[in-house]
Design a binder for these strands. Structure first.
Lengths: 334, 334
DNA sequence: TTGTACGCGTTATCAC
DNA sequence: GTGATAACGCGTACAA
């Protein structure tokens, strides 16, 4: 059977209290008593019950990682796994377990956010994949459980966030294109329910304006491949003179490349394409995709770290990671 | 503050017992009393504490998903995310939460398997990424916590497994090659610490023998790209007449394709290459990779389902999923 | 230095 | 139908 603190007490001939003290490293225990208890504990493979402990300490030492909106499309792999891994690594480091929960806008209406948290007594939550109109988003902000949002820049008493500098990232991309001599640059943005889309568009506009280029060409997709293909066709139809496209995701960039091919345009000879995310695929397609790298593992690990900070009672300050331009072969001016 | 069952009892003017009964749908509660309690519960947003409940029921309603050996290489994305998702979906469906834990052979020596389980009172565990000499593997088998192993065909009192029919998968691959007229077929297998390698090699040998082709050519890699490249070179060096290579992973297949190119061989014109796993990349590289598809999401969801079966006290019978040959452009005889 | 006693939020076993 | 009361395994004032 499972050995409890009570068993240890009995076998060691001391009280439960003393065992508890000895195990938790209190100073007021006679060295010999402690030694005896520790020995016994090891011998009997005693494992304190986190459940029982949580009940009294009010801490579950468990974090929730809630992923929203991935049910349908399975194209998020590259992104998600690294984030998950980052979260787990850091959480483990800090002594926390991680419960993974997947949800969708649909489910959110059925199961209130706080139910998820309180049922498991989650100490804190990391939320990824939020859309503007997500039910949870509102619940989270005025909930009592600390939360770190990934890619949604909100800071409050119990909330903080982690994201990359999407505005800067977009400028990086566009500046690269400008540097190569492009003047007619279009953008295929993601859907406007994502916060990152807003920032990326802002960066796009800024960069263009700074180069005295006006009337930005923008169409919107859904981050998926097919929408990139359609976007590219739509753009070229109305603007045949266009020479470069900045896409808000690598998948849309792939789609765009294919769309351009359908139109008989060569990439990058006639039209340059730049993506966003730096998923593994980029290196392997032809032409290899120039893109903006997002530090995914860090996105996760920093989120966990920030959450632990919040849990300590300190105020969150929001964390903005640096994007990085990765130049490959889909952008060229020759 | 948090509202407990005690509060409900007080406010409803009944005892705790009655509240508990009403909430858990017992029959022996006056309809009116029940209505009143339920109403109150909803109104006050009462959420039962899973922690407290677990303490008495001995069930945490939590599954552990332990992933081993992914720390270093990040090439497991495609595979892992789908499995994770499958597990979560199915677990949620069955009323279980999932705790995700990453471990490595190194950590396994530090933290005993049962510590992980007992600390969180895991009801059951799904283990992925086991190697032959994994410390946990042995611990798991004679542990008291039910476990489903992914890709390790072991069935015991409290253990079961889920895997694809790797042997058949290998035969599928080789038969395809044979059908295209290949006679000199080599294999780049994964490392021998993986159970799947054994099966795939067996299938490879079987298929060859059945075609009266003997002296199988086999080299071993580590499932990663670079080892595929090296493997291909090694093979061709000693067997210049070889016309097809069966690789135990898509990454090794990619590597093999590049290795062949380095040698001036064209794929598939001179040498055909077939991979294993059907990661997304396959569709996008040139030439698109012929491969064996593994139903990853099902691997996860079936594992969760099987675990729940085990939890119900029923015996596990092991689940073998069907592989599927996906023909693309890296195998051709012309 | 050590032990007593209580409480954490539930469920379960009895009585009434 | 309903209500005391005892667990569950542990932490911690308060005493001794």
């Amino acid at each position: 059977m499972k050995v409890t603190i009570k068993d240890l007490a009995r076998l060691a001939g001391v009280s439960i209290t003393t065992v508890s003290r000895a195990l938790n490293g209190y100073k007021d225990v006679r060295p010999e008593t402690r030694r005896k208890i520790l020995e016994l504990a090891k011998e009997l493979h005693y494992r304190p019950s986190g459940i029982a402990r949580s009940l009294v300490t009010k801490e579950s030492k468990t974090l929730g990682l809630i992923i929203s909106g991935f049910t349908g499309s399975r194209k998020g792999h590259h992104f998600m796994f690294d984030i998950i891994y980052g979260v787990i690594d850091q959480a483990t480091e800090c002594g926390y377990d991680v419960i993974l929960a997947a949800t969708s806008p649909h489910q959110q209406k059925a199961v209130p956010y706080m139910e998820l948290c309180q049922r498991r007594q989650l100490d804190g939550v990391i939320f990824f994949g939020a859309r503007r109109n997500d039910v949870y988003l509102h619940e989270i902000i005025n909930a009592s459980v600390p939360c770190v949002l990934i890619d949604v820049p909100i800071v409050s008493d119990r909330c903080s966030f982690v994201t990359v500098d999407n505005r800067k990232a977009a400028r990086l991309a566009v500046d690269h294109l400008l540097l190569q001599g492009h003047r007619r640059i279009a953008m295929i943005n993601g859907h406007q329910e994502a916060y990152v889309s807003e920032e990326r568009e802002a960066g796009f506009r800024e960069a263009l304006k700074q180069a005295d280029l006006d009337e930005p060409l923008i169409v919107y997709g859904d981050f998926e491949e097919e929408s990139g293909r359609e976007g590219a066709k739509k753009l070229l139809e109305t603007n045949p003179d266009l020479t470069a496209i900045f896409c808000a995701s690598d998948w849309m960039a792939m789609g765009a490349v294919n769309g351009l091919r359908d139109l008989g345009k060569r990439v990058p000879e006639e039209v340059s394409v730049i993506g966003f995310d730096d998923i593994e695929l980029c290196r392997y397609v032809t032409p290899a995709l120039t893109t903006i790298h997002q530090p995914r593992y860090e996105l996760g690990s920093k989120a966990a770290k920030e959450l632990v900070t919040l849990l300590r009672g300190e105020k969150g300050k929001g964390i903005v990671l640096e994007p990085e331009l990765i130049i490959r072969n889909s952008t060229n001016w020759s």
